[in-house]
């Protein structure tokens, strides 16, 4: 298992200059119930940011704010300012916004179509390729970058639902990166996978972080420590602490964070 060499290749300070995503005073309500309280955080460009925290603390809710998937949840209301590259997402067209942001879900959710069609679908609806050949090329490259090409090269026309869980999850990643997004959101991408498949996805995340800004929700402290550059700790809908992953895991500033990391709340 390789760990991204995150603290030596580039100076961290240089990276922090450019925040890809910046949230300020974000409140989210499901009907009358408030799920996020005054969330403020920054996600740096081309880094992996891990969101950790006990179940129900609002990690997925925050993730869905970024690509406005909360819009489709009935009764969900988002307040506050969330910007991507300085643009407020509330003012952007959600369909165009989501094309720029890939999302990988907790449960692999390939379309019940062929492997090829799964990856090609986004390419087609956004007309990213001029012709069939270009589509083929994008599909091949995406599968290759998701580390799936060798396994499925000979059966691109088979149903995606026939793949194993780990393969399906990598297919979902391939589907997301086929659109060449700037940002990839992952909501517990490994929670239904075995350790070997998890390791492959983690390696993949490390590779992808060269080119993409990644926000990952995880319940595994080890995973957060392994893959992320920065970590944000949520508790009861609030951001308790955020910072460099090493700092959070070695010298947390807040008592709550320490208690969670050492397994005493959650």
């Amino acid at each position: 298992m390789t760990t991204p060499d995150k603290h030596t290749d580039k100076p961290a300070a240089a990276k922090r200059q450019r925040a890809k995503i910046r949230a300020r005073a974000v409140n989210v309500y499901y009907g009358d119930k408030q799920a996020l309280f005054q969330v403020a955080l920054e996600v740096p460009h081309k880094q992996v940011t891990a969101l950790i925290g006990p179940s129900g603390c609002g990690k997925s809710t925050f993730l869905r704010c970024i690509n406005r998937m909360n819009d489709v949840i009935e009764g969900c209301r988002v307040e506050g300012e969330l910007t991507i590259d300085g643009e407020n997402v509330a003012t952007l067209d959600p369909v165009a916004l989501r094309a720029r942001i890939g999302m990988v879900f907790q449960k692999p959710n390939p379309f019940p179509k062929s492997i090829y069609d799964n990856v090609a679908y986004g390419v087609r609806i956004h007309a990213l390729a001029q012709n069939r050949k270009e589509t083929d090329e994008i599909v091949r490259q995406s599968l290759a970058r998701a580390g799936l090409e060798q396994e499925v090269a000979s059966r691109l026309n088979d149903s995606a639902t026939a793949l194993s869980g780990g393969q399906q999850q990598r297919l979902c990643i391939a589907r997301a990166i086929a659109l060449q997004p700037d940002i990839i959101l992952m909501d517990e991408p490994c929670s239904s996978l075995d350790p070997i498949a998890t390791a492959r996805i983690e390696n993949l995340i490390a590779e992808l972080s060269q080119n993409y800004t990644i926000v990952i929700v995880t319940h595994s402290m080890q995973q957060a420590a392994r893959v992320s550059h920065r970590t944000v700790f949520f508790h009861l809908g609030r951001v308790v602490e955020s910072g460099e992953t090493t700092q959070i895991f070695t010298t947390p500033r807040r008592k709550q964070t320490e208690r969670y990391i050492t397994g005493r709340i959650g």
Partner: peptide
Amino acid sequence: GIRNAGLALGA
């Protein structure tokens, strides 16, 4: 999940 997948791809 199918709906989420479609929407998240910008459909």
